[in-house]
C-alpha cells in the first residue's frame, strides 16, 4: 500500500484514492481532429508509454476531497517522487535524475 500525499488534504492511505492512468496526454484540437489519420487517433486513444521507470499519472482523492491531481511514480520501486496539481507543468524527473 502507498501513502499518497494529497496536495489538498495531506498524506492519506492508498485505498482512499482512485487511479486515472497516464497524465499529460493532450486532446487533439478541433483543427487537428479534422485531418488526423486512423493511426494518429489510435495513438491518442489507446497507446500509452508503459514506462519502466518514472511514470506520470493521474490520481483522484475519491474518499476525501474528490480532487484530481498528478503523481510522478517510479513503476519499479513504486516510490512516489512528486505530487503536483492539475495544470502544473510535468516535472523534470527521469530514472537518471531521481530527486534525493
Amino acid at each position: 500500500m502507498f501513502v499518497i500525499n494529497c496536495p489538498y488534504c495531506g498524506p492519506r492511505d492508498e485505498h482512499e484514492f482512485g487511479y486515472g492512468h497516464e497524465a499529460h496526454i493532450a486532446r487533439p484540437t478541433l483543427e487537428q481532429q479534422g485531418t488526423m489519420s486512423d493511426a494518429e487517433w489510435a495513438n491518442y486513444l489507446f497507446l500509452r508509454t508503459n514506462t519502466k521507470g518514472v511514470h506520470f499519472e493521474r490520481w483522484v482523492h475519491t474518499k476525501g476531497c474528490r480532487r484530481w491531481f498528478n503523481v510522478a511514480r517510479h513503476t519499479v520501486t513504486h516510490e512516489i517522487l512528486k505530487v503536483y496539481k492539475m495544470g502544473e507543468p510535468k516535472p523534470d524527473i527521469s530514472a537518471e535524475n531521481l530527486p534525493r
Binding site: 488534504c9 492519506r12 485505498h15 482512499e16 474518499k63 476525501g64 476531497c65
Partner: peptide, 10 residues
C-alpha cells in the same frame, strides 16, 4: 475534520 472511510463506509 477529515473525509475518509470508516470500515469501508465514506
Amino acid at each position: 475534520c477529515a473525509q475518509t472511510s470508516l470500515s469501508r463506509t465514506n
